[in-house]
């Protein structure tokens, strides 16, 4: 488990709250009076999906994420985080062929569509030693308890490649690209 590095939280690195003096915090007008029985088009979540409606502030203070990059290790049984590895491969490839200048560098804020993403890297001894996510593409929530016992067992399967002869593709790769973009931006600064 990576060490929890200090108690720094994202609150300390997010920009200050906007000045609200002009018109106050935006309030949501109640939607033009729809009757209370205007149910969502989807059947309301069954009681089994108990939802903890805790009183929480409008956002959860999240610990800043430090990702220590260990030095190369011998053979690895699992292949965790392949999505992240795509970015890491680029970083690893770079560090194999060029030295980075020591310091801390922030990549550009990239558009991950569901929000901004920004990566900060730390270089020590010319190598990438840790990676910090300054901005996340989406916000975090406290846990919602879902009562799986009340729901049927769901089938699972290994994914496998299919024919690519389809009319259109649905996929969410935008955030991965945003991550790699910001990471590469930070590494470029570190090598200039």
């Amino acid at each position: 488990m990576p060490a929890a590095i200090g108690k720094e939280t994202t609150a300390s690195i997010t920009p200050p709250k906007p000045d609200r003096q002009k018109v106050g915090v935006p309030r949501f007008p109640q939607a033009s009076p729809k009757p209370a029985e205007s149910a969502p088009t989807i059947a309301t979540v069954q009681p089994s999906a108990a939802v903890d409606r805790q009183e929480i502030s409008s956002f959860a203070v999240t610990p800043a994420v430090y990702i220590p990059i260990p030095q190369p290790r011998p053979d690895y049984p699992q292949a965790p985080a392949r999505v992240v590895r795509t970015g890491m491969k680029a970083a690893a490839a770079n560090s194999a062929t060029q030295r980075f200048n020591d310091g801390t560098y922030s990549g550009p804020v990239t558009d991950a569509y569901y929000g901004p993403m920004q990566i900060q890297v730390s270089i020590q001894g010319g190598r990438l030693t840790s990676l910090k996510v300054l901005k996340y593409p989406s916000d975090r929530r406290t846990s919602v308890r879902i009562n799986r016992e009340a729901l049927p067992m769901l089938r699972d399967e290994a994914i496998s490649a299919q024919s690519a002869d389809v009319d259109i593709i649905s996929g969410a790769t935008l955030s991965s690209r945003a991550f790699i973009q910001s990471l590469n931006g930070a590494l470029r600064k570190a090598s200039s």
């Binding site: 488990m1 990576p2 929890a4 959860a60 999240t62 610990p63 994420v65 430090y66 990702i67 220590p68 990059i69 260990p70 290790r73 690895y76 049984p77 699992q78 965790p80 985080a81 999505v83 992240v84 590895r85 970015g87 890491m88 991950a112 569901y114 996510v133 996340y136 593409p137 989406s138 916000d139 975090r140 649905s170 996929g171 969410a172 790769t173 955030s175 991965s176 991550f179």
Partner: peptide, 22 residues
């Protein structure tokens, strides 16, 4: 289709032995 590279709060270690980080 929804997806991001990470779930936010989790500290993740690309080369770790631990639980899947996402």
């Amino acid at each position: 289709t929804s997806g991001t590279y990470a779930r936010g709060q989790h500290i993740y270690n690309p080369y770790g032995f631990d639980e899947p980080i996402t």
